[in-house]
């Protein structure tokens, strides 16, 4: 009996300490509507079709302003593209490099290249964007409280500013951005891209797809991690049961 009391106490300590962690997630953000994501939960995987459509949205829309600093073209095999498709996508980009003669030159991209950045550096990005810096998107899902739900909400959260709000020059009203004034113009509009698989390109659809893609790019190891995790957690749970049985056997001749 005592054993369970002590376990309960340990569990309470655990929960108590955990309860403090999410507390810092709150902030000035509006409550985010929860979406259902294919990659959520312990068994979730990336919806390949959605992630590929999402790459198309990134490629045709977001990549004009945002880089994917930590990602490589080769990562795209993780959303179900073949090696040939990836090579073709990479080759369609022109990458600045240094030639054999030591002079700067452009060459077609390779799968081993990082995604091409739209601007040479942050200053160039700011100069082109009215002083605002479009952040790197390769970690964006991890780098915002609310993660995928937040980025989806941001992309779909544009509307006309309330009449009593004074907007600064070049700023756009967005319900979910801190302070509600964001420098990014609404990037998505009905039919902004044409999907090869015929999916209607509504704003919500494109937002959902691009967030799925960005979630993959933020944590490309997700599927491998969860698959391995199921086996490892099961192993330790099983071992707990086994060692407990052995423990009872060993202790069976002790009065205590």
């Amino acid at each position: 009996m005592m054993r369970w009391v002590t376990f309960a106490a340990a569990a309470a300590a655990l929960i108590g300490s955990l309860a403090t962690a999410p507390a810092r997630a709150e902030g000035d953000h509006m409550a985010l509507p929860k979406q259902s994501w294919s990659f959520a939960g312990p068994f979730g995987t990336f919806d390949r079709a959605a992630a590929q459509r999402g790459f198309q949205v990134y490629n045709e829309v977001c990549s004009a302003c945002h880089q994917l600093h930590h990602a490589y073209y080769r990562d795209l095999t993780g959303i179900g593209l073949s090696a040939e498709q990836v090579a073709a996508i990479a080759a369609s980009k022109s990458i600045s490099d240094i030639g054999d003669d030591g002079a700067p030159m452009d060459r077609p991209g390779l799968p081993s290249d990082h995604f091409k950045a739209p601007y040479a550096n942050d200053l160039a990005a700011r100069a082109a964007q009215n002083g605002a810096l479009p952040p790197d998107l390769s970690l964006i899902i991890k780098a915002r409280d609310g993660g995928a739900d937040y980025v989806y909400a941001l992309l779909t959260g544009y509307s006309a500013a309330p009449s009593n709000m004074k907007m600064s020059d070049g700023m756009n009203y967005n319900k979910y951005f801190v302070g509600n004034q964001v420098a990014m113009t609404p990037p998505l509009s009905e039919g902004r891209v044409t999907y090869a698989d015929g999916t209607p390109a509504s704003v919500n659809q494109m937002a959902k797809d691009v967030v799925t893609f960005l979630a993959f790019i933020s944590e490309p190891e997700t599927e491998q991690r969860k698959a391995l995790g199921v086996r490892i957690v099961l192993f330790f749970v099983l071992m707990t049961g086994l060692t407990y049985a052995v423990k009872r056997k060993v202790w069976s001749d002790v009065d205590h």
Partner: peptide
């Protein structure tokens, strides 16, 4: 006696630890 009793706790602890590492690594 206590090597085995510690092992019980250790396995359970590692199960919980692994739960965070694999399913909520950024918790």
């Amino acid at each position: 006696y206590y090597t085995i009793k510690d092992s019980v706790g250790l396995c359970l602890f590692l199960a919980i630890f692994a739960g965070f590492v694999f399913f909520a690594p950024n918790f």
